[in-house]
Simulated assay, not measured.
Amino acid sequence: MNRNLKNAVIAFLVPLPSILFYLSFLRNFESAAIADGSGAAALSPVWAWCATHPLLLANVLFFFNVNVVFWVVSQCISSHWMIDLYWTVIPVMLVYYYANFPLAQFDGWRSGTVIVMTWLWSLRLTHNYLRREKWQFGAREDWRFTDMSRQYGGNWWWMSFFSVYVSQQVFLMGICLPMYIIHTVDKPLNVWDFAAVAVCLTGIVVAYFADTQLHEFVTRNEVLEGLGKPKVPNLDRGMWSYSRHPNYFGEQLWWWGLALFAWNLGHGWASAGALVNSLCLAYVTVLVERRMLEQEYRAEAYRLYQKTTSVWIPWVKSSAFAAKDKST
């Protein structure tokens, strides 16, 4: 079995413990409901706890199946690549988990709309991930994890459990809180729901085109490098002429659109996950730009790019520097 196929098989098998446990819980609840008409009295203490603590159960399943199992697998294969792929999959699993929970109550139109949009978001991000990795599973891990492994040396094997996996639980469970709220409040649709849909879809579209333009830029540079020609130092065309990180901007629109659903349902606190994610992405932006400036062939062009172009929110170029940019 070649490496790509082996990694693909691992990726498809690794979430099975959580999926099988949840399906077993649903079967037991359904059987108990048939037995006594409500589903509560006939449940064992373990299943009864699961039925009354959906958010805690989701965190428990995440801890054992992602934090522990993914970490053990990463130690066996000496790579943390799998968490990047599952960033695109776990929100889909969570929205179905909340929607199918036995005691869930919600508006069917709102739930169905969010499920469809979550699929669109996931398909876009999964396609971009696999396209970027040249359709290879596990070819490489995130460069930030590689840098941290060098930084922490012999301690990285245990520190990675917290830095790579426990931290992902905070981020992913936090930003997906609106999905939980959407499936605990049965309230008719209103104008704010349509506004939330507009924000979410705008984010998906912006991120798709920004990532596609970036992919085309990287591909062209790879061709130029193969021909022995100088690479283009910086992408400053298309959406990238208005924002230095339009892909990040689109991604944040998606998560804040979901937060708007929760706010509309009277649970503004559920936007805390989107806020934390935005703050972390701001830090990642600093790391990415620092990395760009460390590459000698593009440092000067990128410094000018920083002076003329907005960081996240698309905006017109700074006129004082834009004129200089055109003249060079």
Rank of each mutant, 00 (worst) to 15 (best):
R3W: 00
R3S: 12
L5D: 09
P15A: 05
L16Q: 05
S18Q: 07
L20C: 10
Y22M: 03
F25M: 09
L26G: 02
E30P: 00
A32R: 03
D36Y: 10
A41S: 14
S44W: 09
V46Q: 12
P54R: 04
N59E: 11
F63R: 07
F63V: 05
N65M: 00
N67S: 15
F70I: 07
W71F: 10
W71R: 09
W71I: 06
V73Y: 05
Q75L: 15
I77Q: 07
I83G: 00
D84L: 09
D84I: 09
L85Q: 05
T88S: 14
V89D: 03
I90S: 01
V92A: 07
Y97S: 02
Q105S: 15
F106R: 08
V114L: 15
I115V: 14
T118H: 06
L125M: 12
R131H: 14
E133Q: 15
K134H: 14
F137S: 05
R140I: 02
F145D: 04
T146E: 11
W156Y: 13
W157T: 11
F161S: 04
S163H: 14
V164Y: 06
V164F: 05
Y165N: 07
V166F: 13
V170P: 07
F171L: 14
G174V: 01
G174L: 05
C176W: 04
C176G: 05
P178F: 02
M179R: 00
Y180P: 03
I181Q: 02
I181R: 01
L189M: 15
N190K: 04
A195D: 02
A196D: 01
T202N: 11
G203H: 09
V205M: 09
A207L: 04
F217H: 04
F217E: 06
R220F: 01
E222D: 14
V223N: 05
L224P: 08
L224D: 03
L227P: 00
K231E: 11
P233I: 08
L235S: 06
R237L: 10
R237C: 02
R237K: 14
M239V: 12
Y242Q: 05
R244S: 03
H245L: 10
W254E: 04
G257A: 09
L258T: 07
A259Y: 02
A270M: 09
S271L: 12
G273F: 09
L275D: 02
L275V: 15
L275S: 06
N277G: 14
S278L: 15
S278F: 15
L279C: 10
C280V: 12
A282R: 07
Y283I: 10
Y283M: 10
E294D: 09
R298K: 10
Y305H: 09
Y305D: 01
Q306F: 03
P314K: 04
P314L: 03
K317T: 01
S319W: 13
A320I: 06
F321K: 13
S327N: 12
T328A: 13
T328N: 10
T328L: 13
